[in-house]
Design a protein around this nucleic acid. Structure first.
Lengths: 199, 199
DNA sequence: CCCATTGCATAGCGCCCGATATAGAATTCG
DNA sequence: CGAATTCTATATCGGGCGCTATGCAATGGG
């Protein structure tokens, strides 16, 4: 891993380039972002990009993975750290309102923005994003189910519906942010959404 | 309008071709749909498409307008026909769950599917879709505001937040449908969402 | 100091994109 | 009928796409 490399050293910061690529994909989506857009923003030529990241799709895959750790982690963190499912989802929605309108970066959520239709262009891209979204729904449902089992939520609670509802609200927050909603407006949506939660 | 035309008559049904184009755009989005995809599905050659519809963007504009009258009208209809704002939004969400999973056509909502990022490719396309979404939010808010004024909803009700919340849920329903949720699952989301509504 | 190794820069590959020029086919008018 | 008009079919156009072949620059090993 830390082996000294023999040839000419890379003249750009791979991590910084990855961050730049993240912002471009986040802003314009996968299809609408061309390799020329990427190389221009990253300040490198095409062969450097291909040498460092493989191709456009594998670069995007790496971007998405990194995005999940950097920008999307607030959701799982809220689900893990809060003592109750209700508190976890409430925090998740509140933080989504903040994250999706954070100044200095694109609005909304990359995993919701970046793909449009279905099976048209890149089969793997849309499928991997869908898998991430499905995992998020499952994580919420698991958290809700745990609280139902422990008595923190009423026994008749439909965990699947509550989880899917919560995920839908997050996705709606992203779309609203994309359409120009302010942080305060999204916080209002998040607060409203929590009124649907069982007592 | 009904004037006899002089030359060779068109050999395809313009309305049917428009419907076919709607389904293709609905399935794959604007960017990911190529003119070749359209001509193949519509069963006509490229010059016929350009003669009948102008270009790809103007065809899409016509598709979106027609979609709003055919497939998206249920929202405004619910807002106009139901006696209370709560009933209107409840019906809107219930019908969205049904519409977005209707067999035999693409899932979700065209105006939410068809555009990805922002200002990249076609400036007018994304902007016109955003305008439609904004109009929908405004229509909901107007309906809520009317009920607050008439006493059908509590005086302190935040009409803007409630409207934006409702729109966000609709958008979440579309995304969930796109991700493969069943009609029953979406109806569960819609029912859950209505619990946030004021008594 | 020479060479192997690796990255960078220029230039360009084949391909598909949206859009069209041209010529022929089908209709109405006189 | 011929002439004018309108649509269709074939065959492209220029351009941007993702990607790469080639040659030069910069480093480490001997």
């Amino acid at each position: 891993m830390a082996e000294r490399q023999r040839g000419r050293p890379r003249s750009f910061d791979r991590e910084a380039a990855l961050e730049t690529a993240t912002l471009v994909f986040w802003e314009h989506g996968y299809e609408a972002t061309s390799v020329a857009d990427l190389t221009r923003a990253m300040g490198i030529a095409a062969p450097s990009l291909y040498a460092a990241f493989g191709n456009k799709e594998s670069l995007f895959t790496e971007v998405v993975q990194r995005y999940g750790q950097r920008y999307g982690a607030f959701m799982l963190r809220a689900l893990q750290e809060e003592p109750t499912a209700r508190g976890a989802v409430s925090r998740m929605l509140r933080e989504a309102a903040r994250e999706y309108t954070e100044p200095g970066r694109p609005t909304g959520c990359l995993t919701l923005i970046a793909a449009t239709g279905g099976t048209t262009a890149s089969p793997g891209v849309e499928e991997s994003l869908r898998a991430i979204r499905a995992a998020n729904v499952a994580a919420i449902e698991s958290r809700v189910r745990a609280d139902v089992a422990s008595g923190g939520l009423p026994p008749g609670t439909d965990a699947a519906a509550l989880a899917r509802y919560s995920a839908a609200v997050v996705q709606g927050l992203s779309q609203q942010a994309r359409d120009g909603a302010t942080r305060e407006q999204l916080e209002g949506v998040a607060a409203t959404a929590m009124r649907a939660w069982p007592a």
